[in-house]
Simulated assay, not measured.
Amino acid sequence: MTAVPATTPVPATTAGPAARLGLGVGMDLPWGERIGFRETPGGGDVTPRVRAFLDRHADHFGYSFFAFQPRSRARLRAGDYTPAYDRLYEAMPAGNVRAFHHTLLNMGTPERYDRRPAAEFANDLHARYGFSWVVEDLGIWSLRGRPLPYPLPPVMTERGLEIATGHARDARELLEPPLHVEFPGFTEGGSFVLGDLDGFDYFRRLAEDADVWVTLDVGHLLSYQWLRGRTGQAMYDELERLPLERCRELHLSGCQITNGKFRDLHHGVLLDEQIDLTRHLLPRCPNLLGVTYEDPVYGEDGVLVEKSRRNYERLRLIVGEWAAAPGEDQG
């Protein structure tokens, strides 16, 4: 792994994450998209649209992460990315807690997979930016070296669980920041499932045996409940089987219900069901650090698309109330 150039890094927060960081933002920033990174002579920068969003909304968030997107198929080197990442952090409030959403650990794959280069890349970035954690979905992100358009759930069999647990344990040991393993997506029509183990039991057993913290994506939980026919009030059924005491972060990204099927679209518009389930989970996750609004969508002026504003403000309100009351019982 090539060392990060010895330029002045963007200062990171000097303290680890405190209890209840409140609302955070997660951003998937592809190269060459309007919401993403752009190539510049200086090594890259966020687009003007992203900068406008941060100018307008960054003070809403107590922490942030961005998801890794490759700029090319060249050998993975942190120094190829840090100029653009520096510009991103310069546009954000100083001192905010930072995290990193990996996409290369591939913990759900049934194949042998050397994740040392991916871990070294994250560790190099961590040395520069001081990440408080690294998160990645427990999914199959690539097969035989070819990335998939959307990560598939891990193989839901006893052998699949054994393999995925080993992968998660390896990733935890390779990474310098703490690892948060995210509950996988089960979008009907967008992925398929091999095996018949219960998803909540599978995830709890993996978290306990690999000894990892977890992230619960509210849309992923609802997609699994919908797949099992648990809609309406039944969406709360059996959530206690999840490793709630290990949960450090909740994610919410734009979702939609179409013809009775749950779609995880990341289009910025949160469903009422996501807000309701978040409200249900907050007092049941005693070690929760924060709640992340993932992949906001906005115009050139940085203003959130109109359809997303109502439930975004509802989310801000309930998370703000939760963060302001850290002494309450977590029953």
Rank of each mutant, 00 (worst) to 15 (best):
residue 2 T to E: 13
residue 4 V to K: 06
residue 12 A to R: 14
residue 13 T to E: 14
residue 13 T to C: 15
residue 14 T to V: 05
residue 16 G to W: 05
residue 17 P to Q: 10
residue 26 G to L: 03
residue 37 F to G: 10
residue 38 R to V: 12
residue 40 T to C: 11
residue 40 T to I: 04
residue 41 P to K: 10
residue 44 G to A: 07
residue 45 D to N: 11
residue 49 R to Q: 14
residue 50 V to R: 00
residue 50 V to E: 09
residue 51 R to V: 05
residue 51 R to C: 05
residue 56 R to F: 15
residue 57 H to I: 05
residue 59 D to V: 14
residue 76 L to R: 08
residue 76 L to D: 03
residue 80 D to Q: 06
residue 81 Y to I: 01
residue 85 Y to G: 05
residue 88 L to D: 01
residue 91 A to C: 13
residue 91 A to S: 09
residue 92 M to K: 04
residue 95 G to S: 12
residue 97 V to C: 07
residue 98 R to P: 04
residue 107 M to G: 12
residue 111 E to I: 04
residue 113 Y to S: 12
residue 114 D to Y: 03
residue 118 A to Y: 04
residue 118 A to W: 03
residue 120 E to S: 14
residue 123 N to P: 08
residue 129 Y to I: 11
residue 130 G to Y: 02
residue 135 V to D: 11
residue 136 E to N: 13
residue 152 L to T: 02
residue 153 P to Q: 07
residue 153 P to Y: 01
residue 154 P to K: 00
residue 157 T to H: 10
residue 158 E to W: 14
residue 160 G to S: 06
residue 164 A to V: 12
residue 165 T to S: 08
residue 167 H to R: 01
residue 168 A to N: 02
residue 172 R to E: 03
residue 175 L to G: 13
residue 178 P to S: 07
residue 182 E to R: 01
residue 189 G to W: 13
residue 190 G to D: 00
residue 191 S to H: 07
residue 192 F to G: 11
residue 194 L to F: 12
residue 200 F to T: 03
residue 201 D to R: 10
residue 201 D to T: 11
residue 205 R to F: 05
residue 207 A to F: 07
residue 207 A to N: 00
residue 208 E to G: 08
residue 209 D to R: 09
residue 209 D to G: 03
residue 210 A to K: 00
residue 215 T to M: 12
residue 215 T to W: 08
residue 219 G to F: 02
residue 231 T to D: 12
residue 235 M to I: 15
residue 244 L to T: 11
residue 257 I to Y: 01
residue 260 G to I: 09
residue 262 F to G: 07
residue 263 R to C: 07
residue 264 D to A: 10
residue 274 Q to N: 09
residue 274 Q to S: 01
residue 274 Q to V: 00
residue 276 D to V: 05
residue 276 D to Y: 03
residue 282 L to H: 05
residue 283 P to T: 09
residue 285 C to V: 13
residue 287 N to A: 15
residue 296 P to H: 06
residue 298 Y to W: 04
residue 299 G to R: 04
residue 303 V to E: 10
residue 304 L to I: 02
residue 305 V to K: 02
residue 308 S to M: 08
residue 309 R to H: 02
residue 309 R to L: 09
residue 310 R to K: 13
residue 312 Y to L: 05
residue 314 R to L: 01
residue 314 R to T: 02
residue 316 R to C: 04
residue 319 V to R: 00
residue 323 A to V: 10
residue 326 P to Q: 01
residue 327 G to H: 14
residue 327 G to L: 10
residue 329 D to L: 14
residue 331 G to P: 11
